[in-house]
């Protein structure tokens, strides 16, 4: 599991690669810390290479989404694959994120 965060065109773009299971969750959460300090910038989470997500991963996404709402910024999930989309669907997360 590799995670990277970059600022592109005034937006924070996070790229998640691999499988976000419970074991990988702590370090991923750590890596995504900048997103919680976005300062009102919109957030794009690129899921192109995210193959798997467990509930611990969903919790990280929910934390980011809650913080962003407080700061008035958008959170967009980009290129979500079927496997991850199914999980988001099952948990009702599909209604609280924007997708690209």
């Amino acid at each position: 599991m590799t995670t990277s965060v970059q600022e592109i065109d005034g937006k924070l773009v996070a790229k998640l690669c691999g499988e976000l299971d419970t074991a990988a969750a702590p370090e991923t959460e750590q890596a995504l810390q900048p997103l919680l300090e976005s300062g009102g910038k919109d957030i794009i989470i690129d899921c192109t290479e995210l193959d798997y997500i467990a509930s611990s991963g969903l919790r990280i996404l929910l934390g980011i989404r809650k913080k962003a709402t407080e700061l008035g910024s958008r959170v967009v999930l980009k290129n979500v694959g079927d496997a991850v989309r199914d999980v988001l669907d099952l948990t009702g997360f599909i209604s609280i994120f924007e997708f690209e």
């Binding site: 509930s55 969903l58 919790r59 929910l62 934390g63 809650k66 709402t69 948990t91 009702g92 609280i96």
Partner: peptide
């Protein structure tokens, strides 16, 4: 199980695991 109908601010952090297990 977590309530999947609440809005963002009120979404609980827990209960997602058992929800997923039951559904899957």
């Amino acid at each position: 199980s977590a309530d999947t109908t609440l809005d963002v601010q009120n979404r609980p952090i827990g209960g997602l695991g058992i929800l997923l297990t039951r559904k899957l």
